[in-house]
């Protein structure tokens, strides 16, 4: 039994190559452009505090598309998902624990 994270079933030189269909790539790029127009359009309206939320939701959607399809995470091993997730979680820790100070300064 192999201690490596890859399955020995692939055997020596056995190599898994994932080829993503062109159709999928072109769909994604179309979505990315559409979302870019959407973000500019929504930013031109005064939505109050929702401006930021909408902009962030659109940006997160775009980033997710790039990560999953262009960066092949959708077809990657669990460990890659964990690494992507941990970068999000650790950035969230940085933001949450810093902002808990700033946002509670006036609580007394």
């Amino acid at each position: 039994m192999s201690g490596h994270d890859h399955s020995p079933a692939h055997g020596h030189g056995g190599h898994h190559v994932h080829v993503v269909s062109l159709k999928m790539y072109f769909t994604v790029i179309a979505l990315l452009f559409a979302l870019t127009f959407l973000t500019v359009w929504t930013a031109s309206m005064d939505l109050g505090a929702y401006n930021t939320i909408v902009a962030l939701l659109i940006a997160i959607t775009k980033a997710t598309l790039v990560v999953l399809i262009f960066m092949h995470v959708l077809w990657s091993k669990k460990i890659v998902w964990i690494m992507v997730g941990s970068s999000v979680v650790w950035f969230a820790i940085l933001v949450a624990f810093t902002m808990q100070d700033y946002l509670s300064r006036n609580l007394g």
């Binding site: 870019t36 973000t39 500019v40 930013a43 031109s44 309206m45 939505l47 401006n51 940006a59 775009k62």
Partner: peptide, 14 residues
């Protein structure tokens, strides 16, 4: 850049 664009350029667009 996907994050920088809305966060930097579009804050006061409205």
């Amino acid at each position: 850049w996907i994050f920088l664009f809305p966060m930097i350029y579009l804050l006061g667009y409205h």
